[in-house]
């Protein structure tokens, strides 16, 4: 699969475990005037900190495009209903189009077991203390699991509305899921995520009569941080609105790399 990047197919799927911090020893220097030192001691670098992750993500994206795999990165807070939405989705579309699910959680294989019960291949990544998936984790999975051509790959990220916004996995786009049991101002509280997403799914709309959640206000807030964001209202349990989401999925096409990056991974407001 990876003749181009030189990575070894023998690599095991490895999850980086990060030691907890016991000691904070901060020396705040940001926003201070940057001093200029003598040229011999100065090395111009101009390198992206995430260049390694972005390189692997692009490699994943090239592979997805070559195999006509539509890869979606599903992000939300814990408990917004990502797995339930996937269960309902897979039950509907798996008969027509092959699907694979990658589950990212800090611990347990519970979500992968729920997906597997729908008859779909599920791969569990446990990140340990890590709070997000990184491109290399997806890359490692692809070395061990043949993902079918012309299929959907749903990557369910770790439940977290902060960190996953920053890490490109090579997906076609990010889908942010927000449930009506959360506050309608989540898009304003976690703007990076809603800015990075192409679609916002408002889930659990069957509970609207019982909760204080202003759908219109929520959509307005989301459009404040991302005027182009699309919105679909569903209830993954009652199947209300599920057809809108399924039609949205059917409209997706694996597209040209550059378009993907411009349109999704680094979202920009419309001119």
């Amino acid at each position: 699969m990876c003749g181009t990047c030189g990575c070894s197919a023998q690599n095991k799927v490895q999850i980086q475990t990060i030691e907890p911090i016991n000691e904070i020893n901060s020396a705040p220097t940001h926003n201070e005037k940057q001093e200029i030192s003598s040229p011999s001691k100065l090395q111009h670098v101009e390198a992206q900190i995430l260049s390694h992750n972005n390189h692997i993500a692009q490699h994943n994206r090239d592979t997805f495009n070559a195999k006509h795999i539509i890869a979606l990165n599903l992000v939300s807070s814990p408990g917004a209903g990502k797995t339930t939405l996937l269960e309902s989705t897979l039950t509907e579309i798996n008969r027509r189009v092959p699907c694979t699910v990658i589950e990212g959680d800090q611990q347990t294989a519970n979500d992968a077991a729920r997906i597997a019960a729908t008859g779909v291949n599920a791969i569990q990544i446990n990140t340990g203390t890590g709070c997000h998936l990184e491109a290399d984790m997806i890359h490692q999975v692809m070395h061990h699991h043949e993902i079918e051509n012309n299929s959907y790959l749903f990557i369910e990220n770790v439940g977290n509305l902060v960190c996953p916004a920053l890490f490109d996995l090579g997906e076609l786009c990010k889908v942010a899921i927000l449930s009506v049991t959360e506050g309608e101002d989540k898009p304003l509280k976690y703007p990076h995520m809603f800015q990075a997403a192409q679609l916002m799914i408002i889930n659990k709309v069957d509970l609207l009569p019982y909760v204080q959640f202003d759908v219109k206000q929520c959509i307005d807030y989301a459009k404040q941080v991302n005027p182009d964001i699309e919105v679909i209202e569903v209830s993954a349990t009652s199947k209300l609105g599920l057809d809108d989401w399924l039609s949205w999925l059917e409209r997706l096409q694996p597209i040209n790399n550059q378009e993907v990056r411009d349109g999704c991974a680094h979202h920009h407001h419309h001119a």
């Binding site: 030192s37 090395q43 670098v45 390198a47 407001h269």
Partner: peptide
């Protein structure tokens, strides 16, 4: 339309 402001860049090093 927004441009810039998404830097996460190592600008230079001083030895």
């Amino acid at each position: 339309a927004v441009s810039g402001g998404d830097d996460l860049t190592i600008q230079d090093l001083e030895f």
